[in-house]
Design a protein around this nucleic acid. Structure first.
Length: 553
RNA sequence: GCGCCCGUAGCUCAGCGGAAGAGCAGCUGCCUUCUAAGCAGUCGGUCGCAGGUUCGAAUCCUGCCGGGCGCGCCA
């Protein structure tokens, strides 16, 4: 019996109690059943009696007593106790929990999937770093978290499109082009330009491909620098993200919005909604109608569009492609955008609460030898995706960035994450998987396999460590569903650490393989099922984070 | 000044309406048996402070205090 089934059982008992007049309450839609940390409190606990007490006009423990008797009579339930202020502590029959191992093996890689978000069409935009330099640490957090979130949302049944918005228009790109050309001509980089080795590299590549470049007239040379330079830069960004395990379904060019006249179309749409006005020669959107702290310029006095105007057009484009949820993942330095993005949705006549979601990720500080590594893109001394991967590897980088709530600032200690020790959480989890794989491998060499379904005896998995492990395995689907609903993939990582811990404890106490000439017992075979089930869940969870599940370490 | 995030064990952080947690650090133990990158035990907390809501608050509300990040006809 898993938590889902238990919830249904408890709710059914409440319904029955209401039907025969033992309780006079409205039956709640959701019944909370939790796995208590303290195992003295049974396999599961519910607070349902306390919830109903007020409405029933009776003491919580009295309501609990009424329900306890009925729940205890249900099949699969071994014991029910009323505890504390009115908790019901439930203990299940051993066999009813052990069944789960077979359920997990039958589901395989689909175990953990749900329909929690079925029917939702989600546009998930993340990274979207400007193609004026390599991917740096701020964007890497979103690469790891965004990709994991995409996987988690998909597992919860949503239709997800991962999208990278590519700012290939505007002043930053012009600065980038001027910097390239300056370097190619041996001139100093402009004051507001970009410096760094990558600029030199790209300039050299352009010069090789177009020998006439440096001697072209200024406008022509800049145009070439912009076209070819941005292309090279973007290829490098895509490649480094791909090597990091992150790929997008759509790479959206800002230029296309302009080329297709989508900014004009968006302006017209906003105007039709009555949200546009003119002041000081500029065209504005009255975002203050919807809580923004100031109105925003769409088109400047000189006739140029603002970046914000492109944002409006891009949002409209997403909506017209059928996405009912547009998720933006932004760094804390852009949190000022939340208000205006929400207001944009409202100005289009959409529901800002439903159609737009902005996730803000706090900063990442990189520590080396206990000291922060300073970051400055212009100066070129940045921590890059490639540097991180070189220092601690793809798995550690992804895991380190995905295991924390995006609300908290991360201090990423390179020495810790590079270490092959228990300080390093990613090894703790991966090591559990490798150990499991090892048991299964060794069993195979002994000619000892899972056998038929009938060879599995769930009732034999009655050891406390086995019960603990089964209880945690049962939580996986709800952990994934909750991570998806809350957009918090770090919950999956924390869960895996808990699961790995319970497996290590099981491993320490419960022998799976026969020793020496020992015969394979039913207990051992049933433990092999549990072993394989645990391996499947660890592998599924690591896969949601985009972290490998090694067979050996 | 205004807005967002954070403040939980010595350190790094989970938990975010229901019975205070993990890892590390410290101290004690466990490898002739499935990977010791592991396990067991122990030490350690007025959950920043003050009010409020609630049967019940680390969790929700208000106000403070401390730290981080933002508030352009920049991108």
């Amino acid at each position: 019996m898993d938590p889902e089934q238990l919830r249904a059982l408890v709710r059914g008992v409440v319904v029955a109690a209401v039907d025969d007049g033992a309780l006079d309450v409205e039956v709640p839609d959701v019944v909370h059943v939790e796995r208590p940390r303290n195992r003295d409190h049974g396999d599961y606990a519910t607070n349902i009696a306390m919830q109903l007490a007020r409405e029933a006009g009776r003491a919580p423990r009295e309501v609990a007593a009424i329900l306890a008797e009925r729940i205890a009579a249900m099949p699969g339930v071994a014991e029910v106790q009323v505890a504390g202020p009115g908790f019901l502590n439930l203990t299940l029959e051993p066999g009813s929990q052990g069944e789960l191992a077979a359920t997990i093996l039958a589901a395989g890689s689909a175990y953990g999937h749900s329909d929690a978000l079925a029917g939702e069409r989600i546009n998930l935009e993340f990274v979207s770093a400007n193609p004026t330099g390599p991917v740096h640490i701020g964007a890497v957090r979103w690469a790891a978290v965004g990709d994991a979130l995409g996987r988690v949302l998909t597992a919860a049944g949503a239709a997800v499109t991962r999208e990278y918005y590519f700012n290939d228009a505007g002043a930053q790109i012009e600065r980038f082009a001027r910097s390239l050309l300056a370097v190619a001509r041996g001139e100093p980089v402009p004051q507001d330009g970009y410096a760094g080795e990558y600029i030199t590299d790209i300039a050299a590549q352009i010069s090789t491909a177009h020998p006439e470049w440096a001697s072209m007239d200024q406008a022509e040379a800049l145009d070439l620098a912009q076209r070819v330079g941005v292309d090279l830069m973007f290829t490098e960004i895509r490649t480094s993200l791909h090597d990091f395990g992150v790929d997008f379904d759509v790479y959206f060019n800002e230029k296309d919005l302009h080329a297709r006249g989508e900014l004009d179309a968006a302006l017209a749409r906003l105007d039709a909604q009555g949200r546009v006005f003119t002041r000081d020669g500029a065209t504005w959107l009255r975002t203050t109608d919807f809580g923004d702290d100031k109105d925003r310029v769409l088109r400047k006095g000189d006739g140029d569009w603002t970046y914000f105007a492109a944002d409006c057009a891009y949002y409209l484009d997403k909506r017209e492609r059928g996405f009912d949820r547009c998720i933006y993942m932004l760094g804390a330095d852009h949190h000022g955008y939340v208000g205006r993005l929400k207001a944009v949705a409202a100005c289009f006549g959409d529901d800002p609460e439903r159609n737009i979601e902005v996730l803000i990720g706090q900063m990442v500080n990189v520590l080396k030898d206990g000291a922060p590594v300073r970051m400055s893109k212009r100066a070129g001394n940045v921590v890059l995706l490639a540097d991180l991967v070189e220092a601690i590897g793809v798995d550690a980088t992804r895991y380190a960035l995905a295991r924390y709530s995006t609300d908290s600032t991360i201090d990423l200690d390179l020495d810790l994450w590079a270490s092959r020790s228990n300080d390093n959480p990613v090894y703790y989890v991966q090591y559990a998987h490798a150990r499991l794989a090892s048991i299964i491998r060794n069993a195979g060499e002994l000619g000892f396999g899972l056998g038929e379904r009938g060879d599995f005896r769930p009732d034999l998995l009655s050891h406390e460590r086995e019960a603990d492990l089964l209880g945690v395995l049962a939580q996986f689907p709800e952990v994934v569903a909750r991570a998806a609903e809350l957009r918090e993939p770090h919950r999956v990582a924390r869960y895996l650490e808990e699961l790995a811990g319970d497996f290590h404890k099981f491993y320490d106490t419960c022998r799976v393989l026969p020793r020496g000439e020992e015969e394979v017992s039913d207990v051992m075979r049933s433990r092999l099922w549990l072993t394989e089930a645990t391996r499947v869940v660890l592998a599924n969870g690591l896969s949601l984070l985009g972290v490998s599940a090694p067979e050996r370490m």
